[in-house]
């Protein structure tokens, strides 16, 4: 009656994952101290996404989860991106944004 399709391993993997996350946190803080212009945002987001993936795969056991649940969770990000993408499409293409916002 085991729920778990995956066998139980030791706690080593969790410790490794934690160490990885700490290293990535240090990297993202360190990179932020250097001014790279627009690249800063991009790098910070890439590192954050890497951390998020690590948490999802090993802490949330995405690696052993059913395909259905993977699709379900992925859907959330797809629709959040649609939300952002189409809203951004409007704001970004409004002509002379500077003039539009009178209070700027």
């Amino acid at each position: 009656m085991a729920h778990d399709a995956h066998e139980i391993k030791g706690i080593g993997i969790y410790l490794k994952v934690f160490a990885t996350l700490i290293v990535l946190t240090i990297v993202t803080v360190a990179v932020a101290q250097v001014n790279l212009g627009r690249l800063n945002t991009l790098i910070a987001m890439l590192i954050a996404t890497a951390k998020a993936l690590v948490v999802m795969i090993w802490f949330m056991h995405m690696n052993h989860e059913s395909t259905l649940n993977r699709i379900v969770f992925g859907t959330a990000f797809i629709f959040a991106l649609i939300f952002y993408g189409l809203t951004f499409m409007d704001v970004d293409t409004r002509i002379n944004l500077q003039n539009l916002f009178i209070n700027k």
Partner: peptide, 26 residues
Amino acid sequence: VWLFLVTEILMFSGLFVAYAIFKGVY
């Protein structure tokens, strides 16, 4: 629970979208 997490992400997405839009403007 996974479906519930989906709703949580979309709820926070509103704030993230507001952040991104205003960061673009200001």
